[in-house]
């Protein structure tokens, strides 16, 4: 075979490899372009124009929508949402981390069972599950009646339609999204690192805070984002469990698009949530890189045992 045919052969092989890759990546790319990139760009474009009288867009450029977002009413909703989503995230982590940790300590075959149980609620309708909380929390519900029966309170207290109820509902809804990534990161952690800490004189608690926690922080961050962002955007839970008294960005966005018919302003609010998501992921990536040294995966270089 001459040099030229070899080269053209190599070129063809490379083209074939590229085509092959395109075929595999194609559907995913198409999906992302159609259903993620285009909508986000659309939202970005909308945010710079004026609302139509009956919804839709009037194509006249304006920054008015952005200015409006800084009005006290909306700032209040934003900060309120951040507080509720933040509190939800903290509770989800406080409950989810120990749960994930406990699952990693189970015998191997029970781990799978436990993980299936964790995601089991996802197989029932979200609305039904949220309604179940209405039943649980309402003034004649089992929580109130057992508290009264136990003599802890003398009359039913208002649990439902409070920010607390919203947080309970959100924590419940997104808890599996914390448990799974945290579980994955604890599971991946080399247990010998904890043994090494212990061998060097660290108590179990000490080893947890010095080794386990920092090395599972990337998973914790992922879990936190998975709870924080959808909590911020959720409008069903605030409406059903908050009784409409607790307004969050999610409700506001929904209202702008469906009721107030102010698409451009809704777009600005939606962009706020999207940018927050991007910033949080950037922070997560930076933290993972810091923890793993150079950004190269440390685990790949761990020596296998004889």
């Amino acid at each position: 075979m001459s040099a030229s045919t070899t080269q053209s052969g190599r070129g063809a092989a490379r083209r074939r490899a590229l085509t092959g890759r395109a075929i595999f990546a194609g559907p995913g790319l198409l999906y992302i372009t159609l259903f993620m990139t285009i909508p986000v760009l659309l939202v970005l474009v909308y945010s710079f124009f004026q609302r139509g009288r009956f919804g839709g867009i009037v194509w006249e450029f304006t920054l008015e929508n952005y200015v409006r977002a800084f009005e006290p009413v909306y700032l209040n909703v934003l900060s309120n949402s951040l507080v509720i989503a933040g509190t939800t995230t903290v509770f989800a982590l406080v409950i989810g981390y120990p749960t994930a940790y406990a699952i990693t300590r189970l015998p191997k075959r029970w781990r799978t069972v436990a993980l299936v149980l964790v995601v089991l609620p996802f197989w029932t309708n979200f609305l039904i599950r949220t309604y179940a909380w209405i039943v649980l929390l309402n003034s004649e519900g089992p929580i109130n009646s057992s508290l009264v029966d136990a003599g802890i309170i003398s009359a039913p207290i208002g649990l439902l339609y409070t920010p607390g109820a919203v947080i309970v509902g959100l924590v419940y809804a997104y808890l599996p999204l914390v448990i799974l990534p945290v579980y994955a990161s604890i599971e991946r952690l080399d247990r010998q690192l904890i043994e090494a800490a212990s061998n060097l004189g660290a108590s179990r608690v000490r080893a947890f805070f010095d080794v386990t926690l920092p090395l599972t922080l990337p998973g914790v961050m992922i879990g936190a984002i998975f709870v924080f962002v959808p909590s911020l955007g959720n409008f069903v839970v605030p409406e059903l469990l908050g009784g409409g008294k607790t307004v969050m960005v999610g409700n506001l966005i929904r209202d702008q698009f469906l009721e107030a018919r102010d698409w451009p302003f809704g777009a600005v609010l939606a962009l706020f949530v999207i940018s927050l998501l991007v910033i949080l992921f950037a922070i997560q990536a930076a933290i993972s890189r810091r923890i793993n040294g150079t950004g190269k995966r440390y685990a790949a270089k761990q020596v296998t045992h004889a």
Partner: peptide, 14 residues
């Protein structure tokens, strides 16, 4: 009062 040097070294990556 014993120290162990692990087969895989088990250095703290962070």
């Amino acid at each position: 009062p014993v120290n162990l040097m692990f087969q895989s070294y088990a250095l703290f990556p962070h």
